[in-house]
Computed example of a mutant assay.
Amino acid sequence: MAWTMRLPDDEETSLDEQAKAEGRSKHDITRDALRLYLLRNRTWETPLFTDEESVDLGGPITKEDIRNIMHRSA
């Protein structure tokens, strides 16, 4: 699908400069930005895992907590 995107002059200039710096088209950059936005904001109708499959650490989770959980035996 083709459509038009209008940007303020300063954003258009920044996008032009970024495209030139990366050797990519403005189209590629905006398409990638849209894909990332959609992935970041997606939702699921069903849970990714059940309560039985989850782990309650009883407080904030640290990077070390996540590493320990990922490396434990199944």
Rank of each mutant, 00 (worst) to 15 (best):
L34W: 04
E64N: 10
Y37P: 00
D32Q: 08
P8Q: 13
M5V: 14
A19N: 01
I69R: 05
D56C: 08
M5N: 01
W44H: 12
L34T: 06
P47E: 08
R6Y: 12
Y37D: 07
P47K: 03
S25K: 06
W3R: 10
I61D: 00
P47C: 05
I66V: 15
D10V: 12
I66Y: 04
M70Q: 14
A21W: 08
E53Q: 15
T46D: 14
W3N: 07
K26W: 01
L48Q: 02
G58Q: 12
L38S: 01
T4D: 11
E22Y: 09
R31A: 11
A33I: 03
E22A: 10
E45D: 13
D9L: 07
T13V: 13
E12C: 04
N68M: 13
L48C: 02
D56R: 12
K26I: 01
I66M: 09
L38K: 09
H71Q: 12
E11M: 10
G23E: 06
R42Q: 13
R40Q: 11
A19D: 00
P47A: 07
K63S: 06
R24Y: 01
M70P: 00
E12Y: 12
H27I: 06
R31S: 05
M1E: 13
L36W: 05
D56F: 10
T4E: 12
P60Q: 13
Q18M: 13
R24K: 15
E22C: 03
L15A: 03
I61G: 00
A21M: 09
W44N: 10
P60K: 14
E52Q: 15
R6T: 15
D10L: 12
L36I: 03
I61T: 13
S73L: 09
S14W: 11
D9Y: 06
R35H: 10
D56N: 15
L48K: 03
I69N: 00
W44E: 13
T50D: 10
P47Q: 06
A33P: 00
R24I: 02
R6A: 09
R6C: 03
R42W: 03
E53D: 13
P8T: 11
E22W: 05
W44Q: 11
T62L: 02
T4W: 01
I66R: 02
L48V: 11
K20W: 04
I29G: 01
D16N: 14
A2E: 15
E17I: 13
L34D: 00
T50E: 09
S73Y: 10
I61L: 05
R6D: 04
E45S: 07
I69H: 07
G58M: 06
R6G: 04
D28F: 07
T4Q: 10
D51L: 14
G23V: 05
S73W: 11
L57A: 07
H71K: 08
S25Q: 05
L36V: 07
D65C: 02
D28N: 09
D65A: 03
K26T: 03
N68Y: 07
V55Y: 11
